[in-house]
Design a protein around this nucleic acid. Sequence first.
DNA 1: TCTACTGTAATACTATATGTTACAGATTGG
DNA 2: CCAATCTGTAACATATAGTATTACAGTAGA
Lengths: 137, 137
Amino acid sequence: MNSDFTLAIHSLTYLALQPDRMSTSEAISESAGVHPVRIRKVLSLLKKHGFIKSKEGTGGGFIFAIDLSEVNLWDIYKLTSEGALQPKCPESNEQCVVGANMQRVLFAIFLGAEDHLGEYLKDYSLKEIIDLINKEE
Amino acid sequence: MNSDFTLAIHSLTYLALQPDRMSTSEAISESAGVHPVRIRKVLSLLKKHGFIKSKEGTGGGFIFAIDLSEVNLWDIYKLTSEGALQPKCPESNEQCVVGANMQRVLFAIFLGAEDHLGEYLKDYSLKEIIDLINKEE
DNA sequence: TCTACTGTAATACTATATGTTACAGATTGG
DNA sequence: CCAATCTGTAACATATAGTATTACAGTAGA
């Protein structure tokens, strides 16, 4: 899976630990180790779905908009990575019964697989992520 | 997920439908729509794990080695794609509590996610794939 | 010994992911 | 009103991963 998912979780966790003030994309990018523009792109998506609020200009930045327990890993997976589980299917030969039907069969199975994954990921809310982050090894 | 998984399933399905004779990598590649060398690479892996047998030289090729019901999608996932679910984690800032722990936390969660996925994929044996392939829409 | 295969390494190419630059628009404070 | 500090995005550049191709050694049958 690509790193948008990780960056989204990272950013949300960061914001959750700064509940009282705006955080800039630069501050988050320093924590996450990527370019601020990338953070802004990911956060733009999270904002569009109401998880965070943003403000432009001096003293602006990003801030958490809802309760920690209201967002879980499945929500974020759907935003950033839906379909990532689906195996790539090269365009195969329609003259062959295998080639003609493989994509359809695998697509259906992995649609179910993603739902199944969802049931697992729903059990991890951001609150639990933060608990795990704080629980040092 | 990359297409090695799909090619492995495709090849196995193809071989399962030709149980009495050797199939060449070229024949399979024509059905799957990829280069024969790629098929040979994937089949080399399947052979190493005992799912198929191969024979070099004239009249050679690949043939199914075990019972259809003995191989399922989880077996093949593990061979071709284990770890694919794991979200990429950029190297983040160890000075920050979020950066220092995010990778460890996500890694553990997605290890569990892959196990969970396994429970789902185990329910699909190659026999069932073939039934689905034959069941036209 | 010629032909038809697999096995595999090396290389080339292509697609996707990521990084960077640039700049318009919003907001604040002097 | 102007300068400074942010977000929001598009456009472009670069890096990485996925895939295709070439090449050739080894094996087996006719």
